[in-house]
Design a binder for these strands. Structure first.
Length: 915
DNA sequence: ATACATACGTA
DNA sequence: CGTACGTATGTATC
């Protein structure tokens, strides 16, 4: 292993450590290829949807401006410029008349839009460059080189692949893949991964393969794979040319026949980097917009929504995060047998970890472990080659709860290590969880994303070197090691930033006392899995399959033909064209065929097709669920879900692969699936424990409404109690109809239900629903005060908070788009309630797990389904486990103003244990 | 191959 | 015009 892990700093002896670089944010230059991006936008957006009332097309302007706004927001450049081509003739067409000759004439609706884009750019005070006879690419290439020399990072947005030759550690191309909203970050690694050669060789590859959009033919029969192989074998195009006679086969012949074209291609695709320009990168600083002009231009373009979005964006740009430069990173390889010493020398310091491997509950494996200390000294252990002595030292350190570690994704890391028989303990920070607590509405928390948004640098950037030359891109062991070390270093830097961020948001304890300890519990629970009765599942599959077949046949018979019953489009044809049924609710593709609509149609038409269609849908869905479960049964006869801890913005867990939080329960056939989840061998029974009306109890507590609190303290049926107060009758006179109305309303309130929604759900007049709500709030005024207060407070502070201080930020509460604002208000109503319930059951899980462990019990947690826990009880432990589960779940809220009722059931299957 | 829309299961 | 999720299928688009 020793020679595989080359020290990073020794590789770049002349690289200036960032620590000595001038302080302050590292400048970032954003360069945009104007024509290229405008053209992409033009084809991405329908022109008929984007025109002014006068019929002037604006789709390219809209798409381009929107893309640019997103780039300014997401990339926070300090400098920016847009380059345009000036005319069609260039020095390239002079050399090769057919250059770009296949391009069709500019589409008519595109003409004129470039002038509009220039107006927008002028209002945004963004520099525009162009030069006769020179393409935009060459201008951007020149600026890119100058900017690098000035120590800037460069981002280039262009749909021209020729630009890939410019990519290096300082230069990233943002290449549009579909439309203009989806941009690939073409870093050196991305280019290499995609084309098999690094960016410095990309133009060689393009010369061999050709570029159809430039009308540059390649070698017939030679694709990127062959070209990459040649380039790697002979060291670039020069080498290929030098050895042209050595290349055998058809491809070799073709190469020799087309050599002139290849060399011409190479001359033409080489970008100029010495174009004389009136401006230098330093002149391109981002300027504040000309607000007046922006309003005028956007007004003329009739971009109302985009205008609001962009101005809102500027308002939100109050404090962009400070870049955190990568410090010097030294990759060391302790002599064999001395890893333990290296780790012991760092005792008492928190070290950052990166584990490469497969971090799943089943089939886990770890390949390498990178460790970096707070001084930037790193070591990477290749687990396939580590010596027994070093592995032992590593295992002891990993398992030592007193050896503090910070990671990204502790649960996956723990799984991966467990796959090698290694135990991970002592994790005192997890940057993924920390980022989730800071920004629970984010959709991605991968290390590259977090590095970019919190450290303002690229994860791929070579750590420990400011500017340097060509990067070693060979995929050998030392490069893998370096990457792992860079990841660990990013974790270390993120830990610093996120710790302070967490502190500012009052979420530090939530991390250390809830989410981090929960990682351990969830990891064990996922590895344990829940036993499945495979035969029962197979039998169910047959059973549901029979129903699917017969219901389909009956459905076809009812309409006299066979259609795809799973195609909403074909169903619409049958229902509304063939059978002429009344139209249902509108959806994007026409009219809905969902179950509610079909049931309604059946009540009106009694057409047997609808009955069979509904029965078919049910059966096909249940069959699908069963088949999914069958596929998920692992070799140990158990199903191992993965609980996602950073998905739900409210703080809930989610379950995937398979989702065990949406196993059917409402219908009899559905419940049969629950019978397939059984107690495993060696255990006595399954036990389920769930909170009753947890969300209403939380609403009672948070609102402090005396009436609602009393309802729970009285021990009476909640909806009956509330119904008696709302309708002014004795509890025993509350009819089941009254009770169900109250139940719907109570739960609806926690979701931001409107009187309109309530009227629809209960099938009553809007006025009646509004009256019902009035009566409700008349008796439970504290609830109304609480709900309005929650929204008001969230609007003022920007966030809601749960009992444990878990925040959800809702900037849309102040949006001037009503739809968005209303949605945000409903989220604000629901988040503290759903989120507090999530807090409570997490605390309960920790308590249950702790008690099981400290009492030395063999019973174990298997599942969490939001307000329910499922456990597997070891022989003889039933009573004790039930008692401790009740105790831990009941006390999870601390001193809430209402009791937390827990109901418990046991049985040999999940169905039997349920209640 | 990939993303979006529809439909529907749970709390 | 009720929140939070995950999955499967069909369909359109590259």
């Amino acid at each position: 292993m020793a020679d595989r892990l080359a020290p990073v700093s020794d590789n770049q002896p002349d690289a200036a450590p960032a620590a000595t670089a001038p302080t302050g944010p590292r400048p970032r230059l954003l360069l945009v290829d104007g024509h290229s991006m405008a053209f992409r936008a033009f084809f991405a957006l329908p022109v008929d949807k984007f025109s002014t009332v006068n019929g002037e097309p604006t789709n390219a302007v809209y798409g381009f401006t929107s893309m640019l706004a997103n780039l300014l927001r997401d990339e926070s450049p300090t400098h920016v410029a847009v380059a345009f081509d000036a005319g069609r003739s260039t020095f390239r067409t002079e050399q090769y008349a057919e250059y770009k000759g296949t391009r069709d004439a500019t589409p008519e609706p595109f003409r004129g839009q470039v002038a509009l884009i220039r107006k927008v750019l002028a209002a945004m005070r963004i520099a525009v460059l162009e030069k006769p006879n020179i393409e935009a690419d060459d201008i951007l290439a020149t600026l890119s080189v100058q900017a690098q020399a000035a120590g800037m990072d460069v981002l280039i947005s262009s749909g021209d692949r020729d630009m890939f030759q410019l990519v290096n550690d300082q230069v990233t191309i943002l290449y549009p893949v579909r439309g203009v909203s989806d941009l690939w970050r073409m870093t050196p690694e991305a280019v290499t991964e995609r084309y098999g050669v690094g960016p410095e060789r990309y133009s060689d590859l393009a010369a061999l393969v050709g570029e159809s959009s430039d009308n540059l033919p390649g070698i017939p029969g030679v694709g990127p794979k062959t070209a990459a192989k040649w380039i790697t074998t002979y060291g670039g195009l020069e080498g290929v040319v030098a050895h042209v006679d050595r290349i055998t086969g058809k491809a070799g012949e073709a190469l020799r026949a087309n050599l002139d074209q290849v060399l011409l291609n190479r001359r033409l695709n080489r970008l100029l980097t010495d174009v004389e320009l009136p401006l230098t990168p330093a002149d391109l600083t981002v300027q504040p917009w000309d607000r007046e002009e922006m309003l005028t231009v956007f007004d003329a373009l009739e971009f109302r929504v985009l205008r609001e979005r962009m101005f809102a964006m500027v308002a939100a740009e109050a404090s962009p995060p400070e870049p955190v430069e990568a410090g010097e990173l030294t990759l060391v390889t302790p002599a064999e047998g001395t890893l333990g010493d290296w780790l012991r020398e760092r005792a008492g310091r928190r070290l950052a970890l990166d584990v490469r491997g497969k971090g799943t509950p089943v089939g886990a494996d770890a390949w390498s472990v990178a460790v970096v200390d707070d001084g930037g000294e790193a070591t990477v252990v290749d687990l396939a080659e580590v010596s027994p002595a070093d592995e032992k030292a590593l295992a002891e350190w990993l398992a030592d709860p007193a050896a503090a570690k910070t990671v990204h994704g502790a649960k996956a890391a723990g799984h991966a290590l467990a796959g090698r028989g290694l135990l991970l303990a002592g994790v005192t920070f997890d940057v993924e969880l920390a980022a989730y607590l800071c920004e629970p509405d984010r959709r991605a928390y991968d290390l590259a994303e977090l590095t970019f948004s919190y450290l303002r640098r690229e994860l791929t950037a070579d750590a420990g070197s400011g500017a340097q030359g060509a990067l070693d891109l060979e995929l050998d062991g030392s490069d893998d090691a370096r990457r792992a070390a860079v990841r660990a270093a990013a974790v270390a830097d993120l830990t610093d930033v996120l710790s302070s961020e967490l502190g500012k948001r009052g979420a530090a304890r939530l991390l250390t006392e809830v989410e981090l300890p929960l990682v351990d519990v969830l990891g064990r629970l996922e590895r344990t899995g829940i036993a499945a009765d495979r035969e029962h599942l197979v039998e169910l599959e047959r059973y549901f399959d029979g129903i699917v077949t017969s219901e389909a046949a009956d459905a076809y018979a009812a309409i006299g033909r066979e259609v795809n019953l799973g195609s909403p489009k074909q169903l619409q044809e049958v229902l509304f064209d063939q059978l002429g049924m009344p139209k249902t609710k509108k959806i994007k593709s026409g009219w809905t065929t969902d179950a509610a609509a079909l049931t309604d149609l059946y009540a009106r038409t009694e057409h047997p097709f609808l009955q069979h269609l509904l029965a078919h849908r049910d059966a096909i869905r249940l069959r699908q669920t069963v088949e999914g479960l069958l596929r998920s049964v692992a070799d140990d006869g158990r199903i191992h879900t993965t609980f996602m801890q950073t998905i739900a913005a409210t703080g809930r867990l989610s379950s995937t692969d398979p989702n065990l939080q949406n196993i059917p329960i409402r219908t009899e056939d559905g419940r049969r699936i629950r019978r397939a989840f059984v107690v495993g061998p060696g255990y006595e029974t399954l036990l389920t424990a769930d909170y009753s009306q947890i969300e209403m109890r939380i609403m009672a507590h948070l609102s402090g409404d005396e009436g609602l609190i009393e309802a729970f303290r009285s021990g009476e049926d909640l909806h009956r109690y509330v119904g008696s107060r709302v309708f002014g009758v004795a509890t025993e006179d509350v009819t089941s109809e009254m009770r169900s109305k109250i139940k719907a309303m109570s739960y609806g309130l926690a979701y931001g239900l409107s009187s309109f929604g309530l009227s629809k759900q209960l099938d009553i007049a809007v006025g009646e629903a509004a009256g019902l709500m009035e009566d409700y709030f008349g008796r439970f005024g504290g609830v109304r005060d609480y709900l309005t207060g929650v929204v008001d407070e969230a609007r003022a502070t920007g966030y809601t908070a749960t009992i444990l201080g878990r925040r959800r930020y809702l900037p849309d509460l102040t949006s001037d788009n009503r739809q968005r604002r209303d949605t945000a208000e409903r989220m604000a109503l629901n988040a503290p309630i759903q989120g507090s319930a999530a807090d409570l059951i997490k605390v309960a899980m920790l308590g249950v797990d702790r008690e099981l462990t400290t009492r030395g019990l063999g019973s174990r947690l298997l599942l969490q389904v939001h307000d329910e826990l499922v456990l597997e009880v070891a022989p003889g432990e039933r009573a004790e486990v039930e008692a401790l589960v009740r105790e831990q779940m009941g006390s999870a809220g601390g001193d809430l103003s209402v009791p937390l009722d827990v109901s418990v059931g046991t049985g040999s299957s999940w169905h039997e244990a349920g209640h």
